[in-house]
Write a protein that binds this DNA or RNA. Structure first.
Lengths: 221, 221
DNA sequence: GGTCGACTTGCACAAAGTTCAAGCCGTCTC
DNA sequence: GAGACGGCTTGAACTTTGTGCAAGTCGACC
């Protein structure tokens, strides 16, 4: 029987757990080692560096996204589902945006996702470069939306780590925002009317808007 | 005459220079000190921490964005110009995406930009929450597009820092991408036809698509 | 049973954020 | 003009963290 030994997969999975909970800054090799029940440097036999580990972990996340069949549900529905899945996936792993901004995330996971995306937009009737442009429009929208919401998650993490009352500190931040906004007429007006709706409605509005725009392009062609 | 002393503005400006050249990882207090001609720790009298400095620098960047008057050029043109300006600004300062993913960037600079955005979409005829949803759709699209392109800039920076032939390493990376892509039928097909067009065309296509979608929403109301 | 190669360990070093006590230097008061 | 004060700077030092390295451990195979 082989010795009970670390595996790359096990390391990546544990790294993802830490990343989900603590973000990129919260991941460090010593802690990872402890969680794996081994010395910190044992990881280096399986993985070249922390950077490589981050890239591996990030690519893995794309595997979580389910791929709807455009032939079965229609291209628009398939495109919408893929955008929602991407958005939800990034919100589950907010550190992914940070990773994407500093590293090139490309591997089997991302490629699988991209490949399917192309299929969806080809099924829609786009051809040539329009396929890439169309899928890019939706993809990039979903990603951008997630970016904004991810920073919120990061703030909460930061407050939790530095200690003190999280809610209290969140309120303090909101107050600072309000103080700045009060300097500007239109923002000030917004402070008086509560938002009421979450980011979900905003996301869905934008998503349908982009898809509408694409549909018009298909029709007008 | 007062002693020749550091100022917060001077520190922020130098930090931006370093960030533009080297990214978030490239900014460190000792180097910043050297560049300012003072001890590293002198900065701490003017700024609470590196995190705070990053947030201050990030907010500053929004001031670079020119604000077109929708009454003069029409809402659609104004919205398009603001999106292009945002996109271009983020490409000049790719570290901004990283900063936004880990810190809440909100200050006078961002507020000024947001306030004007609201004005543009109110001028378009949107009301209530639709104003926020509509501006969010375009904003988030431009940001997401910049995120993808920023990671390219980050890669080049990384290669440059680790030394060796930058072009050589870029080619090696491209090869790795091709090897992964070859595993997937639609991506493989793409490898055979050169792209030809830069990201600019893709951005413009998406931008007009979103604006078309918004216009339809205004008309259909 | 010994040897080999896969894997782990502890040590050590360097880089980088931050704290702190001490000092410097205009300026203001008497 | 002398002294005191407060704004600003300095250098040393502590801590955290990524990573290289030489030595060790352990199972499999000859």
């Amino acid at each position: 029987m082989p010795r009970d030994t670390l595996t790359r997969e096990q390391i990546i999975q544990t790294a993802v757990e830490v990343l989900d909970a603590e973000g990129v800054e919260g991941l460090n090799m010593r802690r990872l080692g402890t969680r794996l029940g081994s010395a910190a440097t044992a990881v280096y036999w399986h993985v070249k560096s922390k950077d490589e580990l981050l890239v591996l972990a990030a690519d893995e996340m794309w595997g979580e996204i389910e791929l709807p069949d455009p032939a079965a549900v229609g291209w628009r529905q398939a495109a919408a589902v893929m955008a929602r899945n991407l958005h939800a996936m990034v919100l589950r792993h907010p550190w992914l945006v940070t990773a994407m901004s500093t590293h090139t995330i490309y591997g089997p996971g991302k490629a699988r996702h991209d490949d399917h995306l192309i299929g969806v937009y080809e099924a829609a009737g786009f051809t040539g470069r329009q396929v890439d442009w169309a899928l890019n429009a939706v993809f990039v929208f979903a990603l951008g939306q997630a970016l904004g919401e991810a920073s919120d998650a990061a703030l909460r993490r930061r407050l939790r780590r530095t200690g003190g009352d999280e809610e209290e500190r969140m309120r303090a931040t909101a107050e600072w925002v309000a103080k700045v906004a009060a300097q500007f007429p239109r923002l000030r007006a917004r402070l008086e009317t509560p938002d009421g709706d979450g980011p979900d409605e905003s996301f869905e509005f934008g998503l349908q808007t982009v898809l509408d725009g694409l549909e018009a392009r298909l029709a007008g062609q």
